[in-house]
């Protein structure tokens, strides 16, 4: 159903190499507005690298990435502007340790987007409230648990009002008890219609949140399918092997 919306992010024949070694090869993917794409694959398959390419943290050696129809490989592209539209949350919830929670959130909107502090503060408070952390707004990151920090990192990215959010194994570094609180936040975003690309190892979560599963193996897209189909009846042998590892 979401497939009828317009294409927000389009990846065409993307190729990424480290020296002579190919990391990603001929990746083609269209992400529609409001769609949640979950990228799966074993470690080292290139899924995190794909996310980093989408945010310009890695250069690409071939192909193209288009955001709302505009090519991001163009020489004149202003990545600073692009990144305001693409929010990203990392595995290591890198909040800035020398700033309070609120200062962390305000940095981008006030310094990059030059928005009025009062307006941003209101939005930030609302978002913090939604993730249940409004009472921690004046704390420093070192006073927070991993799960709390990760929820703040999500708010920090959301406060830039991005068109699309990228999540790079955001629960991988967390204590198992804290995984849930972070995944709940992401699930909530999905319900509100946020466009997202999620790299994760949480299979149950992937099944629940995804509109579309992309399975990558050895730098290539191996399978694209709806979650129910992928988990119950994977088409490729590699995907079957991959899923077996997660089932006892």
């Amino acid at each position: 159903m979401k497939g009828n919306n317009k294409v927000l992010l389009e990846i065409v024949g993307l190729r990424k190499t480290y020296g002579a070694r190919p990391v990603l090869d001929d990746i083609n993917l269209s992400i529609h507005k409001g769609e949640v794409v979950v990228v799966l694959g074993s470690s080292g398959c290139g899924k995190s690298t794909l996310l980093r390419c989408l945010n310009g943290l890695e250069s690409i050696q071939g192909g193209d990435i288009k955001l709302s129809g505009k090519s991001l490989t163009d020489k004149n592209v202003n990545w600073q502007e692009v990144r305001q539209q693409i929010g990203m949350v990392f595995q290591n919830y890198d909040l800035f340790p020398h700033m309070t929670v609120m200062e962390n959130i305000l940095l981008g909107p006030s310094k990059v987007q030059k928005r009025a502090e009062k307006e941003v503060m209101e939005q930030a408070s609302q978002l913090l409230d939604r993730v249940g952390l409004l009472n921690r707004k004046d704390d420093y990151p070192r006073q927070l648990s991993g799960g709390q920090k990760q929820r703040i990192a999500i708010v920090r990215a959301l406060c830039m009002n991005p068109e699309i959010m990228l999540f790079d194994e955001v629960t991988a570094a967390l204590d198992p008890e804290m995984v849930r609180e972070v995944l709940d936040v992401i699930l909530g975003l999905a319900k509100q219609g946020m466009t997202m690309v999620i790299v994760t190892h949480e299979m149950g979560f992937a099944k629940a949140v995804a509109d579309c599963i992309v399975f990558i193996d050895a730098g290539k897209i191996c399978e694209i399918a709806e979650p129910d189909e992928f988990f119950s009846n994977p088409k490729t042998e590699r995907a079957r092997q991959f899923l077996n590892i997660f089932q006892y």
Binding site: L57, Q80, R83, G87, F90, F96, L107, G108, V112, M160
Partner: peptide, 8 residues
């Protein structure tokens, strides 16, 4: 990188 990703 997390600074870069919020557009600084």
């Amino acid at each position: 990188e997390s600074g870069i990703s919020i557009g600084l």
